[in-house]
Design a protein around this nucleic acid. Structure first.
Lengths: 345, 345
DNA sequence: CTGAAAGCGCTAACAT
DNA sequence: ATGTTAGCGCTTTCAG
């Protein structure tokens, strides 16, 4: 059970460890017969070189890691997939770490990953989505980035100049809102999210800008914050439906809250989209699972992941491409939105 | 940018590397003043010890990895969560690898993980769910297990004696089927899955056993295989609805296919559960997202993950607890099932 | 084409 | 309480 080493192989083959290393890595010509003999012995013992020793020497591990806030939200596995595929193409092993959106856990992983000398880190969620990231947390990222290449996805540390790729969420919100307005809706609400998060504020910004551009007056209580989960969506929608002057269309911060909104609306006996239109965000698998299928904004999660790895890879290979990469979101119209009911507001 | 080492710290502090190591690991008493000085220097340089060097020496990495087949199926992230939390409690770093259900990718990861000397591996899906696992693939697992502790989750390599924890899926199927029968359904179908997978055959077995136990004759075409996705569920359900003597209740291989089945039924103008009852499996977040909410069987994904890590941990610490651990599934009755319509069959 | 030897960064005896 | 030293398993000059 004591792991076998390159020396054991060498001894058994009657050669030096250098020669074994050479056949292992194809790093210099080796006589065919010795090569064969060595390979046979390797095979026989199922020898696998110790990557720790190798990495220690070469100062690279061939590994990159991704830190995400919530593996349970289907959006993230989707970007993971895109990232992983790209990483594999580049010959990197790809690991996922789940921060659960917990800042101290983020710090923990950041630190562990550095110690383990990963070649690069992709970072999503948590602190980089904060409208106001606490200085220590921001500082930590900046300092880390001096030791290991890191790219931020769908977030930012302002003024840090940290490389990043992101979806233009305000733009996505504009698409969604305009879609609703084009359908004749004049009273539309924004539902879900939390004010401290830039991902929320960006969407609200796009939402309000679109209202304004279309000459629709902004009603202060047409924006209802409250969270990101299905339950939150349900709660918020119930509240919305209790209001006088109830909106005929709702744009939700993500698919989760949109699903919650749909459920609440149905429980109140409303039909969708006849009585109320609902738009989500992210185009997760939930959007297709639900009846009626959800109109939503896609962030191209796969591509987002792939581009992040590509950028990271450029960083790793010393190419200093630091210009942020923005991705265009796209509206996907399905069954949860329809024309405004002209008899109402 | 050249990483700083323990020697650099030692030199700057005017001590030996051993002393620095001691304060780093609290492995022997160090005079308070020197300790302070060293810590200050460490702080100043943001020094982080190289885990590769340390692991190389100590022959352990403090890392365990989990290989899963489809991070995009919400069931798996859920077991990941349970596993990760448990791993953290035990002081292990936890990484996820996504095999995408691809056997060669599994092999690849298995190999990489061994080279990187992870302390243990948790393995889900893919080859261990095959009713007939190809001998090479089985052999690979068995040989690997001689080098690194490994636990199989919800699967098996027959006769390997490999440690495992699993949900009793046949039992889950019995629960679901009995529930339907208790509601008065006599014509019930099994929908989805693929015959080569043990996770499918186990459920069918439970399904048929329950029919038999209740004196309900088995109709050969009441079992419709075809896949695991929402789309598959939809397709299969459409086929089912086209049959004469259409069943009044359907038990689906997982939540995905159940959702697909619901969508197909609705498109055919059927009401759920008034016209047809549908049961899923896994209790993923989809079950709660959909209207009507899905009656389903839970596998306690979180616990499954936690127990796996616990078992793995015992293996790592040399405790030879190899007895398979079985988890009891549980039926969760929601809105997609109801009494059989007595006017029909 | 092959071997000897140094060293990657750290820890753990063994001294002192 | 601290320093010296010998590796952990591998790759890589430098010789031959």
């Amino acid at each position: 059970m004591t792991p076998i080493t390159i020396y054991d192989i060498a001894k058994e083959a009657g050669v030096s460890s250098a020669t074994v290393s050479r056949v292992l890595n194809n790093t210099a010509p080796v006589k065919a017969s010795t090569r064969a003999k060595i390979n046979a012995i390797i095979e026989k013992h199922q020898f696998q070189p110790n990557a720790l020793a190798r990495s220690l020497l070469k100062r690279e591990t061939g590994t990159i890691a991704i830190i995400m806030p919530d593996i349970t939200n289907p959006f993230f596995p989707e970007v993971f997939r895109g990232a992983e595929n790209e990483a594999r193409k580049k010959g990197h092993t790809f690991f996922l770490c789940n921060s659960a959106g917990d800042y101290s856990r983020e710090s923990e992983y950041l630190s562990v990953l550095r110690e383990k000398r990963v070649d690069g880190i992709i970072f999503l969620g948590g602190r980089i989505n904060l409208a106001q990231c606490p200085p220590e947390l921001a500082q930590e990222m900046i300092e880390l980035s001096r030791h290991v290449p890191i790219v931020l996805v769908n977030g930012n540390i302002p003024k840090s100049g940290l490389p990043r790729v992101f979806t233009d969420e305000a733009k996505g919100a504009e698409l969604a809102t305009q879609h609703l307005i084009d359908l004749g809706h004049r009273n539309v609400a924004f539902l879900g999210g939390l004010e401290p998060f830039s991902t929320t504020t960006a969407k609200v910004k796009g939402f309000r800008a679109t209202l304004r551009r279309n000459g629709i007056p902004y009603r202060p209580n047409s924006v209802l914050y409250g969270g990101f989960s299905i339950t939150d969506g349900k709660t918020l929608m119930s509240r919305l439906l209790g209001m006088e002057d109830r909106p005929s269309a709702v744009f939700c911060v993500n698919d989760f809250t949109a699903i919650g909104a749909i459920k609440a609306a149905m429980e109140h006996g409303l039909r969708i989209p006849e009585d109320i239109s609902i738009v989500g965000f992210d185009d997760t698998l939930l959007a297709n699972a639900v009846v009626p299928e959800l109109t939503t904004v896609t962030q191209n999660a796969n591509e987002l992941g792939a581009l992040s790895v590509e950028l990271l890879h450029r960083l790793i290979t010393k190419d200093k491409a630091r210009k942020p990469i923005a991705l265009e979101p796209r509206l996907i119209v399905r069954k949860s939105t329809g024309p405004a009911n002209r008899s109402e507001g």
